[in-house]
Design a protein around this nucleic acid. Structure first.
Lengths: 233, 233
DNA sequence: CCTCGTATAATTGTATACAATCATACGAGG
DNA sequence: CCTCGTATGATTGTATACAATTATACGAGG
């Protein structure tokens, strides 16, 4: 009966192995923009920076390649993958669909604890929005979506959405986070949450769908183009 | 101007490096069912089998983990990931949505060469269907979808769909491929193709959507449950 | 007979050494 | 001055050695 839960908790391995730490660290650094796009990552350099040998670095590279964050050219090097304006749009369109599906499924499968964390999240976000704590607001925004992903009860959908969400976080850091978006976003979160509470899957799906699209529109408005302008300011 | 095409042609690296060959080989073997689910893969054993050292094997393991084909427990081992009946259903539902989006985008971006290959594919499939060549039919079926993925002009959507498609191929091999499905599937392919030709994106989306759902229903009918019955026959 | 702890074996994790490949510099030949 | 080929250095690819961790076996103590 213990056959069921093969939860792929990769986060666990990440903490306790050098490879995992290198992987997480590099992903973080790439997403946060520490490494410029198309920058070459050298195994020894990274290894020295993190105080490890090439082996764990190489293994981390292979994973980063599969995540699409770097591109490895055989016998040549590893390069930070560029992400274009169109890529961002594509990802949001894909996410919009899947996030809707996710909300729909979450309506049927969300646990009491998850529901509780979600309510807490929305409540807290409302507080920080009033206070103007935009960093915490962004953090809560990310977490809201992760809760939703975990609540859908599908490891594949969860994994896919988390991947795309990572990319989005990366992009969001490039654009100046629009201070006006935070409160509006949280209102939409609340609406989605209410729909889930009412067990109205269709409504939750529709709201989640629109939520992502409106997030994208906001991104465009708040200077997506500028962020992708090759001429660095 | 040459800034645009950063095609992640991983297939290339796969052919020329040991790691790539190990990765491809293991993936193939896992998907084809050579390794049973939950079977432990030992680094030295695999290395000996393929005539390489542990290093490329380990790197391949890390990639397979990220693809979800194996699960690595730190300091313990690598195990072939189980895929449940529910996973299959989830994947088909996700694919249905994305395949629709893909068809819609393909309508706007398909190239003449891709259109030509698609027509040839459908034509050939019709031929093999009449002759009862089910192996070729399955091969063409897979290829049709890959053409569609490539035609959508989005590397992220393409990558995501190809991943899920891989899983489906794996499952399809477990169920006895239903001989009646082949021709029907090809008819649906043709309809999708026609919609794309007519530049009717909405129709293509809708048809692709339904195509995946009907493929799933067929899968269920032709013994999905039996294939996942733990009591091996 | 059961429980617990220790020793041993097996396996993975990491570091390093060596081989292969690629990029660059430099000089001979035209 | 340009072109091409060779030599040299840098970087990745692979193999192997060693460390750390985990699983197993076995025996002492209760």
């Amino acid at each position: 009966m213990s056959e069921k839960n093969y939860d792929v908790k990769q986060e666990v391995t990440d903490k306790y192995s050098l490879r995992g730490r290198v992987f997480s660290r590099l992903r973080e650094d790439i997403l946060s923009g520490k490494y410029a796009e198309h920058e070459e990552l050298k195994e020894v350099t990274i290894g020295e920076e993190l105080g490890v040998s090439r082996t764990p670095v190489r293994e981390a590279f292979r994973q980063l390649e599969l995540e699409g964050l770097i591109q490895i050219i055989p016998n040549k090097g590893a390069y930070v993958t560029g992400i274009t304006e169109k890529d961002v749009k594509d990802i949001y369109m894909i996410r919009s669909l899947l996030e809707g599906l996710c909300a729909s499924w979450a309506t049927e499968h969300i646990t009491d604890e998850q529901m509780e964390e979600m309510e807490e999240n929305v409540y807290l976000a409302k507080f920080h929005a009033e206070k103007g704590h935009y960093d915490q607001l962004a953090e809560l925004d990310n977490r809201f979506h992760e809760i939703l992903y975990e609540a859908c009860n599908s490891k594949y959908l969860e994994h896919t959405l988390k991947d795309f969400h990572q990319y989005v976080i990366r992009v969001r850091r490039k654009t100046l986070s629009n201070v006006n978006r935070g409160p509006k976003s949280n209102e939409e979160h609340e609406a989605i949450m209410e729909a889930i509470k009412e067990k109205n899957a269709k409504k939750a799906q529709d709201l989640a769908n629109k939520h992502i699209l409106s997030a994208y529109e906001n991104l465009v408005k708040s200077g997506l183009k500028e962020a992708f302008d090759t001429t660095e300011k």
